[in-house]
Design a protein around this nucleic acid. Sequence first.
DNA 1: GACGAAAGCTAACGCCGTTATATAATGTAG
DNA 2: CTACATTATATAACGGCGTTAGCTTTCGTC
Lengths: 205, 205
Amino acid sequence: MGSAERRRRESKETRQRILDAARDLFVRKGYDATSMRAIADRIEYTPTAIYHHFDNKEALISELCRRDFLALAGAFQRLAEIQDPVERIHRLGEAYVEFGLENPKHYQLMFMAAHRHDHSTGPVKGDPGEDAYAFLRQTVAEAIDGGRFRPEFDDADQVAQMLWAALHGLISLKIAKGEDPWVDMEDVRVTAARARQVLMRGLSR
Amino acid sequence: MGSAERRRRESKETRQRILDAARDLFVRKGYDATSMRAIADRIEYTPTAIYHHFDNKEALISELCRRDFLALAGAFQRLAEIQDPVERIHRLGEAYVEFGLENPKHYQLMFMAAHRHDHSTGPVKGDPGEDAYAFLRQTVAEAIDGGRFRPEFDDADQVAQMLWAALHGLISLKIAKGEDPWVDMEDVRVTAARARQVLMRGLSR
DNA sequence: GACGAAAGCTAACGCCGTTATATAATGTAG
DNA sequence: CTACATTATATAACGGCGTTAGCTTTCGTC
């Protein structure tokens, strides 16, 4: 009978409800400000119940990040059809900045915190379909192979990290310091577009 | 008699000892992993004593950051003698990367966390001698005024943030993801030097 | 019908930041 | 010289945290 399967399904649903509640609270209040008790309350369980589905609080954020990394890689994959690698780099950057500014809390958890994500079950490292960085690096490699950059820029990892960091820097400064009157960070989208333009010009033959 | 002054001096010394202990623990274990009790233990006080010198834990990090921002501005100021603004931008970048990689925990607290620092008592915002960002922006403005950049790059804030973000991105990715096998971030100094070169080439006439 | 696994519960442990309150030291005003 | 005010410390506690030990309930399986 399918009742065993029903239980497995129910367990999976509970697991999902925990993740949904955690995601919502993490995104709205931040990781530290969200307690296991609050997550449990949200779905009308006791905190201990969560521990039947996840090892600990860290495992919650880890699973959420795993899925977000996959989603980002998926968004990138949709740009795979763009033939020209230089154009593709531009569009990747645009998509990345958009993702970061639209989902600042997700972004913070994914790129500004220092929890290693687990590669044993996660997206396949190095597979451009599941690993956004691998996709960027591959696109950069295509541009290099196509002779689009000056010959001294022949290291795909180095160039990919340069491009990534330039945009990550803008996004993360906006998130961390955007409300601080110290620095006026308006128009990050515009600055990012300019930065892409400057970088590509600097790299090009 | 000078006894009142003696007490004021002793209080200041206690305050300083609290800050020293807090800095050491924050840098070694991180902000969240450092408890007020641990700071108090270190200097053989009870936790409550700290609250006579600082409002709360946040005030400790805030004061430490204030001083670090001033120190960074001071380090920048030492490059003020460089006449050529483009050369000065390069050296500022080099100094900034060096600071970030040498003091990753300080860097994390200063640039990767989202606590607004207090400008009422802190470094004077906009004064290049006390505000590292203002110094960078001013140098960029000099380069613009000297006609060193293409005419479309005429916004000093935009260009300054572009340059800053490119290096901040590399440093902060190294700090957050440097131990993650996902991305191989070796040679950040080299990549940063390359990035400066690419950016300046892209900006230049 | 007994058994065992799964999934929930209550209660508690040892932390945390912070505060109410007490106390001792010491400078100051009458 | 004494009374008071201020300062700097201490003790004890509050409410909250992540987590765990141990119990109960549910429910499929032998």
